[in-house]
Write a protein that binds this DNA or RNA. Sequence first.
DNA 1: ACCTGAACACCGTTCAAGT
DNA 2: ACCTGAACACCGTTCAAGT
Lengths: 211, 211
Amino acid sequence: MHTIDTLALMQTSPRRYHHGDLRAALLARAEETLREKGTAALSLRELARDLGVSHAAPSRHFKDKQALLDALALVGYERLTRVMAESQADAGEAFRKRLEAMVHAYVGFCLDNAVLLDLMYSIKHDPEASEALQEATRQWSELIEVLVSDGQRSGEVREGSIERVGVPVFATLHGYADLAATGMLPPEIAEHGLDEVIAFMLRGCAPDGRA
Amino acid sequence: MHTIDTLALMQTSPRRYHHGDLRAALLARAEETLREKGTAALSLRELARDLGVSHAAPSRHFKDKQALLDALALVGYERLTRVMAESQADAGEAFRKRLEAMVHAYVGFCLDNAVLLDLMYSIKHDPEASEALQEATRQWSELIEVLVSDGQRSGEVREGSIERVGVPVFATLHGYADLAATGMLPPEIAEHGLDEVIAFMLRGCAPDGRA
DNA sequence: ACCTGAACACCGTTCAAGT
DNA sequence: ACCTGAACACCGTTCAAGT
């Protein structure tokens, strides 16, 4: 139908109307510049220039700059959740193996997406975070809860509520990844220290008399 | 000497020349607006307006906006180091007590300075962080190293290099504080979970057969 | 529906000039 | 030494108008 017209329009006047999905293009390009030049250097006008649309065009898809940043953070959370979920799918049944897989996935994601991660966390300071964002972080922390409660069922993890057992595991996981991603831990140490951190976590959540 | 002249000048023409220490005033006011409105809302021009100087005046003290943010981060690290050092001074000798004091100090600081903390960590992404900043973070991580190695000397902490024993403790401490500060951990849980996190850390770094 | 182009208020940075 | 005031290039946001 009018798909052909649209294609023709795109070929004959590539500057007048953007290709099909400006929204997605904006997000993709925004993440690129985030990676290359940091959050501070991200400008809506430059983004529009890069994509060959007018500087006002982005406002159709994101009501303001913050809305774009929020959407970017959401992409990050979804990606992180996916990576963590995949790590669990391939890790077998043993708690130790599953914990190892999750730590590797989480640390890997943080190292690969350091600036995006910064954005993801700073968004959380905003009390009016979107519902979608809340949901994304919920799904994410749920993966850790599932891991821990499965470990409790199989007797590999000490008893206790998620608050008592899951939170410390979560904290260690997150802290290590963050230290590595921000460079507070030198890369050599970050790499080499993973096994030790996992052992530390296993001792921390092992049942009594089984440390 | 000319102190009197300066004072007279300040009283008679409060708008023409700023009081003695514009640099300190800029930092103080910057931190206030950081707290009130977040990093994104920080503007050099508004800062200057607030302090009654011209918009170009700050450039005498900070070569650009990033330089002011760096200086602000440095203030944060120095404050954090001081708070942590004080916690150790009052905590007695037992490893457990000292660890408790440090965790409380660190978490407390993060909760009180959430936005500043964001700045402190995002600065670290910048590979060209200043020497003073490097030194500040070094002093800070050293406090944890001292705590751990003292614990090893008294037999309360398992043997092993700082990389092996100190890093996991550091990661857990940092991760818990960060989760609490970013609101990823609901405040009720963050408060109540502290003791459990400390117990987790103690199990993680206890000597073998003493968990 | 989606985008343009002009307009507005604001920003960071620089620099000659003032005291 | 420290600050001013004007200038420049850039930005986010809005809005009537175009297709």
